[in-house]
Simulated assay, not measured.
Amino acid sequence: MLHAVIMAGGSGTRFWPASRKLVPKQLLPLAGESTMIQATSERIESLIPSDRQMIVTNEILVDAIAKQLPNMPRENLVGEPAKRDTAPCIGLAAALVAAKDPEGLMVVMPSDHVIGTNDQFCDAISAAETLVNEDPTRIVTFGIQPTYPAESFGYIQRGSELDSSHQLAPSFDVERFREKPDRQTATQYLESGDFYWNSGIFLWKASTILDALKQNQPAMFQHIQTIAQAIGTPEYEQVLKDEFCAIEGTSIDYAVMENYPNVCVIEAPFKWDDVGSWQSLGRLHPSDPSGNTVVGDHLGIDTRDTIVYSNPDHTVVTIGVKDLIIVQTEGATLVAPKSEEERVREAVKALQSSGRDHLL
């Protein structure tokens, strides 16, 4: 059977001050009425019902996610005892899936992407499932056709095209994965036509990814195996804490994907946005005639190309400004030029070092 694993452990610091430790961006309604994690679960529900969906998150977020996803079985909400990046997260999820369904397949996806439409996404997942059923050792990922030379995404270089007459979209062997490039290199990737943005969405057999971790990350795999052996026992929670915290964290791209010999990429037939920063709202919401994107209540006078995000009961008034990001929340307000938006993380670190942890 096909299972869904939704990774929801990120802190979303680039969306401060709306995103906080206890309410990170995946729990916010940034792209519509539903929160990001609700939309992710709903996206796959017609193909994978909630009893075969698993959320892997920071243990301090389990209760909040349970409230947002009341139909999700509580045992499917997995709290990580420490932040250890995507490879340990995926290894833990694979062990839990394999314990229930030794032949199970799993689609792994982040909780904070905007994808449209749900039907297109589910069709693409079904296409990937077909590829894995054809070759159970195969790992499938999804590549996004780049529209500009992005420096903030990893890239996938495609190789030979697969026999994809039965596929929804073209599928290729993966030549190699590339880290986030500089501007010049990203431009070369775009012009070549052979590179995709790495969506961070994968499909594989649970046993395949566990075998890959065993081969490429034996120390990590040993900790995961010890956790797996404790599943269903009274000692599980303590073993999970001890063993997971002992893992040296790393990304799944570095741990497995860059070295695995049988990876293919499907050219994603769906629209995709990783919602990486406040300027993403300009792509997700309509703008007014002056180019302003507003979520909340705003009165603008001679205001252009500005993003405003506020509580619905709080009116933001701007006069004679342009190219700003203005975020109003309870207890904290952010005002910054769009060109300085990457420094939001710097502000979060400064707040932490100055003892303002109540704002984080």
Rank of each mutant, 00 (worst) to 15 (best):
L2S: 01
T13P: 07
W16D: 05
K21N: 12
K21F: 09
A31N: 14
S34A: 05
A39W: 02
A39H: 07
R43S: 02
I44V: 11
L47Y: 07
S50E: 13
E59R: 11
I60C: 07
L61F: 06
I65N: 08
K67V: 09
N71I: 00
M72T: 09
R74C: 03
E75D: 04
E75R: 05
A82K: 03
R84I: 00
I90P: 10
G91H: 02
G91V: 03
L92C: 13
A95P: 03
A99Q: 03
D101E: 08
L105T: 03
M106N: 09
P110Y: 14
S111C: 04
I115G: 00
I115N: 00
G116P: 00
Q120S: 15
E129H: 10
E129P: 06
T130R: 11
E134D: 12
E134N: 02
F142A: 06
I144F: 13
Q145G: 02
S152V: 15
Q157R: 02
D163C: 12
S165M: 09
Q167A: 07
L168G: 04
A169K: 01
F172V: 01
D173N: 09
V174Y: 10
R178F: 08
P181M: 03
P181L: 00
A186N: 01
Y189I: 00
S192R: 01
S192P: 04
D194Q: 14
W197D: 00
I201W: 02
F202M: 08
A206W: 05
S207H: 01
T208V: 09
T208R: 10
I209R: 00
L213D: 00
L213P: 01
Q222C: 07
I227S: 04
G232H: 03
Q238K: 15
D242R: 09
C245V: 10
I247G: 05
E248C: 00
E258H: 14
N259Q: 09
N262E: 15
I266D: 03
I266G: 04
W272T: 00
S277H: 13
S280K: 06
G282T: 14
G282R: 11
L284G: 11
P286F: 06
S287P: 00
D288S: 13
N292D: 01
V294Y: 09
V295Q: 15
H298Q: 05
G300E: 10
G300Q: 08
T303V: 02
D305R: 13
D305W: 10
P312N: 05
T315D: 12
I319M: 08
I319V: 07
G320L: 13
G320P: 07
K322G: 15
L324K: 08
I326P: 12
T329Q: 09
E330D: 15
A332R: 07
A336N: 01
S339N: 05
E340H: 06
E341A: 14
R343F: 15
R343P: 10
A347W: 11
V348T: 11
L351P: 08
S354D: 14
G355A: 01
D357W: 10
